[in-house]
Computed example of a mutant assay.
Amino acid sequence: MVKFATAVSLIALTMAPAALGKNCKGSLMYCGRGLLNKGNYYDQIIEALQGSGQPTDSAHVNNSLFFCKSDGNIIFQAFCQTSGCINGGADHSDYC
């Protein structure tokens, strides 16, 4: 039984960093395409766009700006229509 518990603990430890790495970082703004590269945010992006009365076409999915809450959920902020959504770099917010 101890070997099984140890194996489960090791698996959990090796998976934890991967799971954490796929979440957006709370308090930062992200372009939709950045969220899609980070993890499985497509459904959340669609929900956030619909909840704000925005279209859900690929331009809006990729070039909208979303605020990342501390729990990993996102909130639509703006559609970056003019110059597109710009990656702000690691540990910096993206912007229009």
Rank of each mutant, 00 (worst) to 15 (best):
S93Y: 02
L49F: 00
Q81P: 00
S27P: 04
Y95H: 11
K3L: 13
N73H: 07
F66Y: 14
D94K: 12
S93L: 04
R33F: 09
K3F: 12
G34M: 08
Q44W: 10
G26L: 15
L35F: 00
S27Y: 13
S83R: 11
L10Q: 15
G21I: 01
T56M: 07
L28P: 01
Q54L: 01
E47I: 07
G39Y: 11
G26M: 11
Y41T: 05
L10C: 07
A48W: 00
A5G: 04
S70F: 04
L36K: 14
G32H: 02
Y41D: 09
N73P: 01
T14H: 13
S83Q: 13
T14W: 14
N23H: 08
G32R: 06
D94I: 13
P55S: 06
F67A: 14
K38W: 00
Y95E: 02
A16N: 10
F79L: 03
A18V: 13
G26E: 06
Q81C: 01
I45V: 14
N40I: 06
I11Y: 09
A48E: 04
A59Q: 08
G26F: 07
Y30C: 04
L10H: 11
S52F: 04
N87R: 06
Q77V: 09
L20K: 07
A78Q: 09
A18E: 08
T82G: 00
V2I: 15
F4D: 12
A12C: 13
S9M: 15
L35K: 02
I46Q: 05
T6S: 14
M29I: 12
A7H: 05
A5H: 12
M1T: 10
S52L: 05
H60A: 07
D71P: 09
R33D: 02
V2T: 15
S52A: 14
C68I: 03
L20V: 06
Y41K: 04
L49C: 02
Q50D: 15
N62D: 15
Q50A: 14
F66I: 09
L35M: 02
K25E: 07
H60D: 05
T56L: 01
I74T: 08
F79V: 03
D71L: 11
N73Y: 03
Q54M: 12
Y42G: 05
N63P: 01
G51T: 10
C24D: 11
N40L: 10
D57Q: 05
A59C: 03
I46C: 01
D71T: 13
G26H: 05
F4W: 13
T6W: 12
Q54E: 12
C80V: 04
A48N: 06
L28W: 03
V8R: 00
Y95A: 08
A5N: 08
K25C: 01
S27D: 15
C85Q: 10
A5I: 14
Q44K: 11
S58N: 11
F79G: 00
V8T: 00
C85M: 07
G32I: 10
S27I: 04
C24H: 02
A16S: 04
A16T: 08
Q81T: 09
G26V: 09
Y41C: 10
F66Q: 09
D57V: 05
Q44A: 15
I46D: 06
C85K: 12
